[in-house]
Design a protein around this nucleic acid. Sequence first.
DNA 1: GCGTAGAATTGGTTCAACCATTTAATGGCT
DNA 2: AGCCATTAAATGGTTGAACCAATTCTACGC
Lengths: 272, 272
Amino acid sequence: MPKVYRHSLSKRRKVVVTSVTPQSRAEEAASSLLAYLASSKLTVGQRLPAERVLAEQLGVSRGILRESLTHLATLGIVESRVGSGTFLCKRPSSNEQHVVMTLDAQRDTLVRYLELRRALETEVVALLAQRATAADIAYFEELVNAVEVEHYTKGTAHESDKRFHLALYERVDNPLFLQILMPLWNVLEHLWNSPLGNTEVGQGTLPLHRQLVNCLRAGDVNGARASVTAMLDSVEQDLRTTDLAAQGHLKRAVPSTNVSDLFIQGGDSEAA
Amino acid sequence: MPKVYRHSLSKRRKVVVTSVTPQSRAEEAASSLLAYLASSKLTVGQRLPAERVLAEQLGVSRGILRESLTHLATLGIVESRVGSGTFLCKRPSSNEQHVVMTLDAQRDTLVRYLELRRALETEVVALLAQRATAADIAYFEELVNAVEVEHYTKGTAHESDKRFHLALYERVDNPLFLQILMPLWNVLEHLWNSPLGNTEVGQGTLPLHRQLVNCLRAGDVNGARASVTAMLDSVEQDLRTTDLAAQGHLKRAVPSTNVSDLFIQGGDSEAA
DNA sequence: GCGTAGAATTGGTTCAACCATTTAATGGCT
DNA sequence: AGCCATTAAATGGTTGAACCAATTCTACGC
């Protein structure tokens, strides 16, 4: 007979399968919340009951309930907006597992990201060459047009290029690819831009985009793979020539901590 | 002066580069905490200062500090043990991005997982065929021996098989692959075992393991790729024959929305 | 009809406790 | 000196009442 906590006994969860891990109340509340969301008819974008209501229904204090919500928010399932409420961002379902992936955006690890992207994107287009519908192809074509237009008018095509590639990940009918490639793309984007403003990587990939779409339409699996491979080769080449830090992708450079840490040291100081 | 919401804010908003994201105090505390961990000399497994101490140093209440810690705990960076303290699980570094991947462990989505695994693992072995050292090869060989031994003695080789494949992901000198494939493998493992106890998938892949290692030693990129492809084909075939739910993996649902979604929506209450 | 002032709602935050577990210190005993 | 039970911190876990600030809802007046 572990914890009892006199009040709130009425609301306590029925401990059916709790033979494992006695969990803290916050964790219990989080999983109860998850179960509630999975079973409720709430759709993405809708509002959850107020914190005070949820807390009472789950039989925990508001503070603990907020810890549970913080957990779910970190998982991207809910989002809170002050004064307005807590909203559902992604419908959870039972039997799902959340995994956090840490992407260390150091410039000297850029080649590793490209390796990952190569692995995923070649397979994506290979699958698309087999699965893509006519509507998909038309959509891709449209986006390629946009890429070319942006390229010839602005010199670069970052935005439309991103849209094109994300569209590929999206239409492959396997959400896992998008789940990985979207954040991966963000990191790469961040890496291109920040250290040396707007590096022009992948300038030579322009014609390959159209070529790729043609392969997809023709159902040419190998051709599609080759197009993507050529694209990434081009990008990698650009990096090697324009970036000194990218050479020797095995080098373990200095961690370079920096970043102002306005932390500790006697708590408060005036500093006006 | 108990009410001091602004005394700390006034000194916080200085010349700092935080041009955007007004962030809540909890988020500020979390990022400060992250910066502190990145700059401190704490090693994995060591204890952080007590919650009460951290809270005071960060200038937030303990409740808020705990929300920040919940966030970091969800990200797998820290772990709290009651009565003992909060401990560092993974050293964070600046410039890193955390991504949560949702793996929905439904049996009818198994094929999608295999698609992802195929994409990653073929590239892993292709890279290994180029990079693997003699020590790596020797290690792989050892693990293959273990696989065969376990297979011939126990009939199955789940454990040693897992060790073998994880070793591949680990030795490719790109931590990203391990980060994705490890949890992915766990989900697959869970899927094999739970619904119909210990399904014997991949029985025919045994000789392919040795073949793969031979290709790696010979630096045969295409051969290595082919070996993995054959393995996964075999697994997929087993699934198709033994599992009815895997049928129609091409069933096409409504194409999901584009990148930006999430918008407000008339408040609705009532639940449960 | 429409805009707006004011009330109600909601998330964000604080504080002062108390509990349960774990660890460190103590002190007596052999 | 060495051992172990007892006690005294120290620590995370949890509560409740309160207040703030942003948002939304309501109703009044024009």
